[in-house]
Amino acid sequence: MTIGGSDVDAINPSHYQDHPVFSGECWEVMQFCDAATGNALKYLWRAGRKDDTAQDLRKALWYIRQLPAPCTPIIPQAVVDRLAAEATPFLEDHESDVLWLTVAAIMHLVRRQHQDAADLINLAIRKAS
Rank of each mutant, 00 (worst) to 15 (best):
8 V>Y: 15
114 H>W: 09
52 D>A: 12
31 Q>R: 14
9 D>P: 06
42 K>P: 03
89 P>E: 03
81 D>K: 13
58 R>K: 15
6 S>T: 02
102 T>R: 13
55 Q>I: 04
77 Q>T: 06
61 L>D: 02
2 T>G: 08
30 M>T: 03
127 K>A: 05
22 F>A: 05
59 K>Q: 07
119 D>V: 02
54 A>R: 13
8 V>N: 04
60 A>N: 11
79 V>N: 02
24 G>D: 02
33 C>R: 10
83 L>R: 14
21 V>Y: 14
116 D>I: 00
98 V>K: 10
89 P>V: 03
32 F>I: 00
92 E>Q: 11
33 C>G: 08
21 V>H: 10
63 Y>C: 09
31 Q>F: 11
4 G>I: 00
97 D>Q: 10
91 L>A: 05
9 D>C: 12
126 R>C: 04
80 V>P: 04
14 S>I: 03
52 D>L: 14
31 Q>L: 09
81 D>A: 14
29 V>L: 10
88 T>M: 08
14 S>A: 07
101 L>T: 00
18 D>S: 14
118 A>H: 05
109 L>E: 01
73 P>T: 02
55 Q>F: 14
95 E>I: 07
4 G>M: 06
44 L>I: 03
127 K>G: 01
100 W>Y: 11
56 D>I: 03
4 G>C: 04
3 I>G: 07
108 H>D: 01
87 A>W: 11
75 I>G: 08
73 P>K: 14
12 N>Y: 13
35 A>I: 07
102 T>N: 05
108 H>V: 00
103 V>P: 00
37 T>E: 10
32 F>C: 03
94 H>F: 03
115 Q>L: 08
101 L>E: 06
113 Q>E: 08
4 G>Y: 09
116 D>P: 01
20 P>R: 13
113 Q>G: 03
70 P>R: 13
53 T>D: 02
57 L>G: 02
90 F>V: 00
125 I>W: 11
93 D>T: 06
11 I>Y: 14
22 F>Y: 12
107 M>C: 09
62 W>L: 09
49 R>C: 06
10 A>G: 05
86 E>H: 08
127 K>L: 11
33 C>P: 04
25 E>F: 15
49 R>Q: 05
110 V>C: 06
18 D>W: 13
18 D>F: 15
72 T>L: 15
3 I>A: 13
94 H>M: 01
84 A>L: 07
25 E>V: 06
62 W>M: 11
